[in-house]
Amino acid sequence: MRLLLDKDIPAWLDLWAEDGVMEFPFAPSGRPGRLEGRAAVAAYMRDYPDHIDLHDFPEVRIHETTDPGTIVVEMRGVGRWVKRGGPFDMTYIAVVSVRDGRFSSYRDYWNPLAVDEPGTDFTRSSTR
């Protein structure tokens, strides 16, 4: 979370296994539902700071599971939308698994309706 707040996407990507998988079970049509491999996650996250200026995670609850390599995280991220300048406030639930100290699986449950507005597609750079 600290790396995302610092907008240090390269360091955040270093936390990923080469074959790590990021999934978005509630992804709407036209948005990726599954990213396979660190390179795919990198391509997806590359322009994230150009779209969301994340300021804080004021609410974080971590739940251990019966699998010592997996946790469930409830979190709330707040900040602002870069293009439209309005507030960003999103609640997430993530199921995160690690292998050899790196993310091997990250299932991100978020509300796609909250970002389903013009100018909020952070999978496309504002500079392209």
Rank of each mutant, 00 (worst) to 15 (best):
residue 54 L to R: 05
residue 41 V to W: 00
residue 110 W to S: 14
residue 37 G to P: 00
residue 69 G to V: 01
residue 12 W to A: 15
residue 25 P to G: 06
residue 102 R to N: 03
residue 19 D to E: 14
residue 5 L to E: 14
residue 114 A to I: 01
residue 90 M to H: 09
residue 56 D to Q: 12
residue 53 D to G: 08
residue 91 T to H: 15
residue 127 T to I: 03
residue 108 D to V: 10
residue 34 R to A: 10
residue 23 E to H: 02
residue 70 T to V: 05
residue 53 D to H: 14
residue 5 L to S: 06
residue 12 W to L: 15
residue 18 E to K: 10
residue 126 S to W: 03
residue 24 F to N: 06
residue 94 A to G: 13
residue 49 P to A: 12
residue 33 G to C: 08
residue 48 Y to W: 10
residue 88 F to D: 01
residue 66 T to I: 02
residue 11 A to M: 14
residue 108 D to G: 07
residue 108 D to I: 06
residue 69 G to M: 06
residue 96 V to N: 13
residue 101 G to Y: 04
residue 109 Y to N: 00
residue 55 H to S: 14
residue 121 D to M: 07
residue 7 K to C: 14
residue 50 D to S: 15
residue 63 H to N: 13
residue 63 H to I: 03
residue 78 V to R: 08
residue 36 E to R: 08
residue 18 E to H: 11
residue 48 Y to M: 12
residue 61 R to K: 14
residue 89 D to T: 07
residue 94 A to W: 08
residue 74 E to C: 06
residue 125 S to E: 09
residue 95 V to I: 15
residue 106 Y to T: 00
residue 16 W to I: 03
residue 87 P to L: 12
residue 67 D to M: 06
residue 25 P to E: 14
residue 6 D to A: 15
residue 32 P to Q: 04
residue 39 A to R: 06
residue 63 H to G: 08
residue 79 G to W: 02
residue 112 P to I: 03
residue 40 A to V: 05
residue 110 W to D: 01
residue 9 I to M: 13
residue 58 P to S: 14
residue 44 Y to R: 11
residue 92 Y to G: 10
residue 111 N to V: 04
residue 16 W to V: 03
residue 33 G to R: 11
residue 39 A to T: 05
residue 103 F to G: 01
residue 10 P to Y: 12
residue 42 A to T: 02
